[in-house]
Design a protein around this nucleic acid. Structure first.
Length: 668
RNA sequence: GGGCGCGUAGCUCAAACGGAUAGAGCAUCGGAUUUCUAAUCCGAGGGUUGCAGGUUCAAUUCCUGCCGCGCCUACCA
């Protein structure tokens, strides 16, 4: 509702400016006043217009307020300060709409969106860094779906890369395991933990003797080639680890629709098709000299190309391409003819946009307990399958360190003339999760003096240094279970366990969302394990409290006031008018912002705003809860109004938490 | 060296598009009619927003320079 009123106000102002001053502002800035006494929206536009109209801002503001006329849904506009225009919402109208759950639908753009996230190398257990990726990605998917968009979720599996090769080397050359033995091992509980150690040991083994690296490249070659014993073992391992990753993420209610694998990019010759296009389009060029001699290279994204973009003739550019300095070159095809990661990624992204002219084969892979089917790529697929790819927008949830690679893919699309697709290619970039030195020490890692002095230390799968996702979840659940046990001894153990799990997931998902993407999370158990203050459980608890009021009062919170809308809007009036009601009104206002916040999260690809909003709503509710005993309220009319307040806040809080993938326990 | 990002309270972080008195949580200290369960609430202290300039009616936000930190800069992914 809040969003809807904002748009209406903006449109009204825009029309008025055009009519009266013949001015077209590209954007009408609308802010939220610091206090509700100043209304619900504030427009600083008089300051902006002062120069154009050569009048004092205050004067302009007064003119606008006097001339603009009534705006539906608002009671008044008012000039404040040096020239702000404050707009006041018609409170009882908004409240009545909220009770009914009315939300004017805004037109959603057509076209399917593809979100790629997680994309964990299938060679070891997932760690907290992967958790941040998956939670951000999954929440963004939920945000888009909330906004009415159709979304496909993909998790790219690099099953033929160096990391898988390394763990294969570990099993074959260090562990000396046979294929049968490995197959046996894949069936053990948490096989990914086993791989975690094997991978770390293999990395050490390479460092002991650089000669050992030859084994790696032989293995890697075999994987890329396919159709051999080594590749079969790699398949065994990577599939088993992938299943573990899906299980881990499912604990957090994170699911995928499709799992495209690098092996199919290779074996279905996606790259060949892309390579041809890139050569034809002049994006790639062959280097005849220097250190990149014999490679197909392209200009690295972000290196200066045209200072006067679009002015120089394009054909002149082509002849200059070969003059791209060595350090500005990105090798796409190595001199031995093999293609690097960026090249495969370009092919994959041409496919995503339906520009490649080839498709994967598809097989059913993983059936979630809720019945959702996840598909995997395959050289020869099943005849009947859903249609993936061929989308109009994509978001890639990939950490900030890969920004350059991502930009190179985008530049390749542009180079091929696919500007529209490039414009709808978003690198959803976020910073890594690192460990505080204290946390690392607690985990038993020996630190150098240099590391101890740092604010945080980067996790490293290669070194086996990090916190595993399942371990963190287990710890959180155990910790939550202790609290639940202490509070609800009367419940059965399975009930308590279920609640503990909801709380643990709420705590974890909220923790991963509360930081803005650009902030490095310095992970610390004390903070992550907290259930108090700005946390998921705090928000869940607010909902539980709201539910309790209804339960104690003998009402159904989900249908309170619903069927007949028995409260006429004028009944709200007396409770929402005047200074004294501002505190309550602020709660209603906050509850009206869900879709507004969701839009903002999508526009800025920043889910943290939603986390912040849910917390603030919960915080305001707790304050309200403390100040207003409801069930003992003597005035029946007021009691009813307070119950409506709780019902609306509760509903909106649940909705906001759902978008973050957080459910609420029946009791806490 | 070049590219990207960051620097805000003791600690961890907010403040979208420049806007009204820079806000939360944690930690510390003090308090809450024993009630719809305190995983809660209220209060207190705590700030030269890294430094120096500039643009603007208005700068934590934009520009320039400097200082500090991180990441990227492989024929790795």
């Amino acid at each position: 509702m809040y969003r809807h009123l904002e748009r209406r106000l903006a449109q009204h102002v825009r029309d008025f400016l055009r009519r009266t001053y013949d001015i077209d502002l590209p954007r009408i800035v609308i802010e939220q006043p610091p206090k509700v006494e100043f209304g619900e929206y504030a427009l600083p536009l008089a300051f902006e217009l002062a120069k154009k109209l050569r009048k004092a801002p205050r004067k302009i503001a007064e003119e606008i307020v006097a001339g603009i006329g009534p705006v539906e849904g608002f009671t008044k506009l008012e000039v404040a300060g040096a020239g702000y225009i404050n707009a006041y919402i018609n409170r009882q109208e908004l409240a009545a709409a909220l009770v009914k759950g009315e939300e004017p639908r805004s037109d959603t753009p057509a076209g399917k969106i593809l979100v790629e996230h997680s994309s964990i190398n299938p060679n070891k257990a997932a760690h907290i860094g992967h958790l941040r990726n998956a939670v951000l990605g999954d929440t963004f998917v939920r945000l888009l779906r909330f906004a009415g968009r159709e979304v496909d979720v993909q998790n790219y599996i690099d099953n033929t890369g160096v990391q898988v090769a390394d763990v294969v080397v570990g099993f074959l050359h260090l562990e000396k395991k046979s294929r049968a033995e490995i197959e046996q091992l894949t069936r053990q509980l948490r096989f990914d933990y086993y791989c975690w150690d094997v991978y770390a040991r293999t990395s050490q083994w390479y460092e002991q003797d650089k000669q050992n690296l030859q084994v790696r490249s032989q293995t890697l070659h075999a994987l890329e080639e396919g159709g051999n014993e080594t590749a079969a073992i790699a398949e065994l391992i990577s599939i088993a680890v992938l299943r573990r990753h899906l299980e881990t993420m499912d604990r957090l209610d994170i699911e995928y629709d499709f799992l495209p694998r690098e092996s199919e990019i290779l074996h279905l010759h996606f790259w060949d098709a892309a390579f041809q296009k890139l050569k034809d389009g002049g994006v790639l060029f062959y280097e005849n000299e220097g250190k990149n001699k014999g490679c197909w290279v392209m200009r690295r994204a972000g290196t200066s190309k045209t200072k006067s973009a679009g002015i120089l003739a394009n054909d002149k550019q082509d002849s200059e391409d070969s003059e791209v300095s060595e350090e500005d070159q990105k090798v796409i095809v190595r001199s031995n003819g093999t293609v690097g990661y960026v090249g495969k990624d370009i092919a994959y992204h041409l496919w995503k946009f339906g520009l490649l002219g080839r498709d994967f084969g598809y097989r059913k892979f993983y059936l979630y307990p809720n019945g959702h089917q996840s598909w995997i790529s395959s050289a020869n697929g099943e005849p009947d399958h859903p249609h993936f790819g061929d989308v109009s927008e994509i978001y890639n949830v990939i950490d900030a360190r890969q920004a350059e690679a991502q930009n190179t893919v985008i530049e390749a699309l542009r180079g091929l003339g696919y500007n529209q697709q490039a414009d709808h290619y978003t690198h959803f970039s976020y910073e890594m999760v690192a460990l505080t030195p204290r946390c690392a020490a607690e985990l038993g890692y020996r630190l150098s003096e240099e590391d101890k002095a740092k604010a945080y230390i980067e996790v490293s799968g290669r070194k086996g240094f990090g916190v595993k996702a399942d371990d963190l979840l287990d710890t959180l659940i155990a910790s939550a279970k202790k609290e639940v046990d202490a509070r609800h001894a009367q419940l059965s153990d399975s009930e308590r366990a279920a609640i503990a799990e909801q709380i643990a997931v709420g705590a974890l998902r909220y923790f991963m969302l509360k930081f803005t993407k650009s902030s490095v999370i310095a992970f610390d158990f004390r903070e992550a394990l907290s259930f108090e203050g700005e946390t998921g459980p705090y928000c869940q608890y607010a909902v539980v409290r709201a539910t309790n009021i209804f339960r104690k009062g003998g009402f159904d919170p989900d249908h309170f006031g619903k069927p007949s809308g028995s409260l006429a809007s004028n009944e709200f009036a007396e409770h929402l008018q005047g200074e004294a009601s501002n505190e309550l009104w602020e709660l209603w206002l906050a509850a009206s912002k869900t879709s507004y916040i969701v839009d903002q999260c999508i526009a800025t690809t920043e889910p943290a705003y939603l986390a912040k909003h849910a917390f603030q709503l919960a915080q305001q509710f707790n304050y309200f809860y403390h100040r207003h005993p409801i069930l003992t309220e003597a005035d029946e009319g007021r009691k009813k109004f307070l119950l409506y307040t709780v019902a609306v806040v509760r509903r909106e809080l649940i909705r906001a938490l759902e978008v973050m993938g957080i459910t609420t326990p029946p009791v806490m």
